[in-house]
């Protein structure tokens, strides 16, 4: 895969001395969905704003498809669509006019067929003559996506696209993003929802206090950093865990029929063999064994805590 966005040693300090980004470097690959996770104030929006031209950045720090965002701003910006966090659309304009305005702004000639298809895909076509102010919050967010896609960008930035939307609309948004990926658009989204990143992202970047703590493939991340749970189902209920097993920090279910063992997949020795051996010595009769992966949320919380 080739990098479509390259960020090198980007530092952003605001007038009040606050370091929003600290020496951040990141390569974003063409056609991927990258989710940036991080608590409030982590620098996610600053990062997006820097790439999209809303903030001034030094030369040679950010390139889009090889074009420097400061030097070749026309070429770099024409490749990008941005959906900001807040719903900000012209209240008195119609959907069609607002979307057409965005297309023109990005230097594209009128293309009624494309706009019609775009609005249809986003379930907005029948509302094309309605004023933005008459739309529901979810529909307004769709209008913002339509505006961002109106000039057929190769890269789409979505800054918390599902913040404050209901579950149904969130799932709809995920479908929209999946379709965009299928059409070859690179999607970078920020989110607070771990579930969202887990569901749709190919890679995940975790940010905290202006730094990018890591960027890794979602599955690899979960695989590499996650702890696993081994559930041991017993044939007969156990009343308590014997002292000989105390080093494994086992937990016993209320009905006494299941033991749970948390182990680290990164460790050289997971302790499973020892545990099973000790269980045998303690005369436990096993019915079944099951392992489950820890969620991204647990990984995220642990990482940010560090």
């Amino acid at each position: 895969m080739t990098s479509v966005i390259s960020i090198k040693n980007l530092t952003k300090t605001y007038g009040n001395g606050f370091h929003a980004l600290l020496n951040l470097s990141l390569e974003i690959e063409e056609g991927e969905i990258l989710a940036l996770l991080g608590p409030n104030g982590a620098g996610k929006t600053t990062l997006i704003s820097s790439v999209c031209g809303l903030l001034s950045v030094p030369k040679n720090t950010i390139t889009i498809a090889g074009f420097d965002v400061s030097e070749d701003y026309r070429k770099s910006r024409s490749l990008i669509g941005l959906v900001p966090q807040e719903i900000t659309i012209e209240p008195f304009e119609t959907v069609m006019n607002a979307v057409s305005f965005s297309r023109g702004l990005f230097g594209k000639p009128k293309n009624s067929a494309y706009i019609k298809q775009l609005l249809t895909d986003l379930s907005l076509y029948d509302k094309r003559n309605q004023k933005n102010m008459t739309l529901s919050g979810g529909m307004k967010r769709r209008v913002m996506i339509a505006k961002a896609l109106s000039h057929e960008p190769k890269i789409l930035f979505l800054d918390e696209p599902t913040a404050g939307v209901d579950v149904e609309l969130r799932k709809d948004m995920w479908d929209v993003i999946a379709r965009l990926r299928e059409s070859g658009v690179t999607v970078i989204l920020t989110t607070h929802y771990i579930e969202e990143a887990e569901e749709i992202a190919d890679r995940i970047g975790i940010m905290n206090k202006g730094e990018l703590l890591l960027v890794e493939g979602k599955n690899e991340l979960i695989q590499r950093m996650g702890s696993k749970n081994l559930s041991i189902e017993l044939q007969e209920p156990a009343k308590k865990i014997p002292a000989s097993l105390s080093r494994f920090n086992l937990t016993l279910s209320n009905d006494g029929m299941q033991l749970n063992y948390i182990y680290d997949v990164r460790a050289q020795k997971t302790g499973i063999v020892d545990l099973l051996s000790e269980l045998k010595k303690a005369s436990f009769k096993l019915r079944d064994l099951q392992t489950s992966q820890s969620s991204l949320e647990e990984i995220f919380v642990n990482l940010v805590k560090e």
Partner: peptide, 14 residues
């Protein structure tokens, strides 16, 4: 005031 200025600032215009 509305915040829609983001679109102008992120567009490829001088």
């Amino acid at each position: 005031f509305l915040g829609t200025i983001y679109e102008v600032l992120s567009a490829p215009i001088s």
